[in-house]
Design a protein around this nucleic acid. Structure first.
Lengths: 200, 200
DNA sequence: GTCTATATCTTGATAGAC
DNA sequence: GTCTATCAAGATATAGAC
């Protein structure tokens, strides 16, 4: 009994730190977020961060990238699966993304974009983590397009371009505080998928 | 005589600080770059930064965003102008961008992308500066597409999606240390422009 | 395991000699 | 206008009481 509640509480504290880190990193960036602020937001004592993440900020950063990347992969899959038409699925996914963007009051809808750019030339451990996450997203979406009829290597390339379009549109939309770039990107993404289907 | 050489030297120091800030911000981000490091890279005494930029880091950041944004706008224009076919022009521009990316050893080829994401939710002055820059790029490219035959508001929307595609592909390419996402995005961008032309 | 206090370093910014 | 010394506040990280 005592053991169980203790373990549960332990996991909760660790999880709260991870959650707070995820929220802060995506909004304020990696270098722009302090460990003290993470502890405060998590409602955890400062020392607990180093208890659960002995590798310090870098370990926490890597874990945030990988775990939130996995969550997002599930989101992509769930969003596309109900559709039989990949063009409509792609277009509607961008419309949903635009809604999310405004609901978040233009805070970062992508959990790793800001950090990915920050660390790309400064921290190879975190750069690789972000690279792995992007690769899995593209693999997952590419498999969907392949199953939907996009032939050969074009399926994965199409997926990469759709992800690029989404990330770039988020950048423009956040900066301008407008959903218009994301909605326009949805039309463009649909055209990209349609063109890839026509090639086969 | 004395006045001339003095003014020249003054402008040079200011310019060197601006140049160093541009290079550092784009590679290490806004919060990840220190004022002391900017002074060191510029070969200027630390105090000179606050002499020329009394508004401190924020003023320097804003000036970096706006001036490098203007330079980049010229680059876009120069790159597209020689072409009569907007589809080929767009595709070749991405190929050139991929070359630039590998020449820079995957350091940030876009002067404001990293900073734009960092400040989007944390600094409204810099967010607006980045927003203005993106808007001018999209205006410029949109005018080109309009002249090339893309009808009505679709011209500007197409331009926005092409810029989004480029920024997103830079993000994926930098993170993976590969030009493949940029090359794939070039094919996708060409398809987007072709679709926009066919609508008219 | 929790929590506090502190060590050490770096940050942005300022004061003042020259 | 140049340059140095310094400030106060922030950062990451650690030590040690409980």
């Amino acid at each position: 009994m005592t053991g169980t509640s203790k373990d549960t509480h332990t996991r909760d504290t660790r999880q709260r730190i991870l959650t707070a880190g995820t929220e802060l990193f995506r909004r304020r960036g990696y270098t722009g977020t302090g460990m003290k602020q993470i502890a405060e937001d998590a409602g955890a004592p400062f020392g607990s961060i180093y208890h659960f993440f002995p590798g310090g900020k870098e370990q926490l950063g890597e874990e945030v990238i990988r775990t939130s990347g996995a969550v997002y992969l599930g989101l992509i899959t769930t969003l596309m699966e109900p559709y039989t038409d990949p063009v409509a699925a792609t277009h509607d996914a961008f419309t949903a993304a635009a809604d999310t963007l405004s609901e978040l009051d233009f805070a970062d809808p992508c959990p790793i974009a800001t950090v990915a750019l920050e660390v790309a030339s400064t921290n190879d451990t975190l750069r690789r983590a972000a690279s792995d996450v992007f690769a899995r997203w593209i693999d997952g979406l590419g498999a969907y397009y392949a199953a939907a009829g996009v032939p050969g290597p074009a399926a994965r390339e199409t997926a990469g371009s759709v992800i690029a379009l989404l990330e770039g549109a988020f950048m423009l939309g956040r900066t301008a505080r407008s959903t218009a770039p994301v909605l326009a990107a949805g039309t463009a993404a649909a055209a990209v998928v349609r063109a890839a289907l026509d090639e086969g």
